[in-house]
Amino acid sequence: MTVSLSAWIHGIGVLGPGLPDWPTTAAVLRRQQSWTFAPTVLTAPELLPPAERRRAVKVVKLALSVGLQAAAAAGADASTLTTIFTSSGGDGLNCHQICETLASDDRQISPTRFHNSVHNAAAGYWSIATGATAPSAVLCAYDGSFGAGLLEALAQVTVDDVPCLLIAYDADYPEPLRATRPIPDAFGVAMLLAPTPGEQPIGRLSVALTTDAAVTLPDSELESLRKAIPAARSLPLLAAIANGTLGRIVLDYLDHAQMAVEFST
């Protein structure tokens, strides 16, 4: 028996270069507003206690910002939500700083550096900020991390019949890591997915794997952003949602398979 993975979208959050939130991003993708690359502005949410706000690294600020955006847009209680966190590599700056310390004469790693180095750091900060005790999964699938996270979130919604908050995020690396992994800036996207349409659904998603080529964006600068940041592989789907374009959108996923997303209402 084939199980169809599908869910309703209740809320969206976006934060990236020149894209401070989902309403602005939607306007850009509808070509109602011009887009210019500007460094992503990251701040630690006020929900975090002061000590954790000081310790929060880039990906933590990014993940929490988009997750809280999506939950607020849906009018959902963030503390109750099952979550899926997905990132291609976690916090590159923190990794760089640990490597610098290990290459120095004083090789003592601070506890803060260490606990921020684990891939589930953002999930931990999320539980502190929101008081969430619901299940949380943390994934990494390199450039396919958004697709892997979307599949996992849809599986959670389908199997457990509960809402699930997908949070995908990537941040830039400093040199010399940047020469090998040239991510230019931070980009995050969150979607609150649910098994039922609710009162004001944004639309419905279902997915399948395909060997068809991924779609590209007509704007060359946004297309460069899509290709440069793994979490931004979501942009063609976000463009379809922003424009109300129903139908099939093929997203980059793995080397041997892409992801076909059906967007409907």
Rank of each mutant, 00 (worst) to 15 (best):
L5M: 11
W8H: 01
W8F: 14
G13P: 00
G16R: 00
G16W: 06
L19H: 05
L19W: 06
T25F: 04
V28S: 07
W35S: 00
P39G: 12
V41L: 13
E46S: 10
P50H: 04
V59R: 00
L64Y: 01
G90C: 02
D91E: 08
G92A: 15
L93A: 06
C95R: 08
H96I: 15
I98L: 07
E100I: 10
D106R: 12
R113G: 02
N116W: 03
A121V: 02
S127H: 03
I128F: 09
A129Y: 04
T130V: 14
P135R: 10
D143I: 05
A155Y: 15
D161V: 15
D170L: 09
D172A: 14
R178L: 09
R178Q: 08
R178I: 15
R178F: 12
A179P: 05
F187A: 01
G188P: 09
M191C: 15
T196G: 07
T196M: 12
T216H: 07
D219P: 11
L222C: 11
S224R: 15
S224H: 09
L225T: 14
A228T: 08
L235S: 01
A240D: 02
I241M: 13
G244L: 10
T245Q: 09
A257V: 03
Q258L: 13
M259C: 12
V261A: 07
V261E: 09
S264P: 05
T265R: 09
